[in-house]
């Protein structure tokens, strides 16, 4: 693997954790958690009475249960809260059935709609989740309930994994790929193939022809944006429109996507990667309350 001067591998995106300064779990009635074990990243989120309390976002290892445990351990780090203090936990994502401490597993589509509704507000109607290895387009109502969805998990084109491959090929850190791709004077034609493997060999050819890095990245980012637009055509785009997942942090793709769709993107000050886990934590809370009502 290629490395930059600090010794970091180019594809390695930044892991993060956060605790809310305004929320205290000791005062909460319902402490719920959501764990999203994705193909590339795992997020653990804890919510207190429906308010975001803390989260951790890290890479998924080869062992799903261990990834879920690690992410939750990191999220709870320094909070004094333990697994026993969680009233209900919902697992979601590819590895949702492998979350050892989860009360229930719920599909990531439902969780992303609910999480997107929380993060971008009730006016959001179309949520596009550009994840590590798949892409989901979701329509939802003002309560975050799914009205229609479409998921493409057959191929990695248009996903974070593809971007990781390009970051490594070009020796540009993944966090800088988007910004750099926007530094072209003129937009190059998109690479003709969106398949990651073919696009990589096409890009190698372009580099040999003397294309600068930013131009190659621009060609790849716009190919990725275009591919997702054709996917969105099937269910249509209703404003307001928001993107979740890791690619939402890549302005090279999001700027081109919003330009091609002619739709403005909603923004959030929260980490876009946690949407699925936030939705799972909200479901966990709803399930816990439902159980209380029944008993």
């Amino acid at each position: 693997m290629a490395q930059d001067e600090k010794g970091a591998e180019y594809w390695r995106w930044t892991e993060s954790r956060w605790t809310s300064p305004d929320v205290n779990w000791q005062d909460g009635e319902v402490v719920s958690a959501g764990v999203d074990v994705g193909s590339v990243s795992t997020q653990a989120v804890v919510m207190v009475d429906g308010k975001l309390y803390c989260f951790a976002s890290m890479r998924t290892g080869s062992d799903s249960p261990e990834s879920a445990n690690n992410a939750m351990k990191w999220a709870l780090d320094g909070t004094g809260l333990t697994l026993d203090g969680l009233h209900a936990t919902v697992g979601t994502g590819y590895g949702r059935v492998n979350v050892p401490f989860a009360t229930k597993a719920i599909t990531e589509i439902a969780c992303h709609a609910r999480g997107g509704n929380f993060m971008y507000g009730p006016t959001v109607r179309t949520i596009l989740d550009m994840g590590g290895q798949d892409c989901k387009a979701i329509h939802c109502d003002e309560r975050g309930k799914v009205k229609a969805f479409l998921m493409n998990d057959k191929c990695a084109a248009g996903t974070g994994r593809g971007m990781e491959v390009f970051a490594d090929l070009l020796g540009v850190h993944i966090n800088d790929v988007g910004e750099l791709s926007l530094k072209v004077e003129e937009e190059p034609p998109p690479v003709s193939s969106t398949c990651v493997v073919f696009a990589k060999s096409e890009a190698s050819g372009l580099l040999r022809e003397g294309w600068p890095k930013e131009k190659v990245l621009a060609a790849y980012c716009s190919a990725m944006a275009h591919r997702v637009v054709t996917l969105l055509e099937r269910i249509g785009v209703e404003p307001e429109f928001a993107i979740t997942g890791g690619i939402a942090k890549n302005p090279g793709v999001t700027t081109r996507l919003s330009k091609e769709l002619g739709v403005e993107l909603k923004t959030t000050d929260m980490d876009t990667q946690i949407a699925g886990a936030v939705g799972a934590a909200l479901f966990a809370r709803a399930l816990y309350i439902k159980k209380l009502r029944k008993s």
Partner: peptide, 16 residues
């Protein structure tokens, strides 16, 4: 809710 299952690849759209 309309649930679309399937995929899109180089050869076309295949959704139920």
């Amino acid at each position: 809710m309309i649930a679309n299952y399937g995929y899109k690849d180089g050869s076309g759209d295949f959704f139920i």
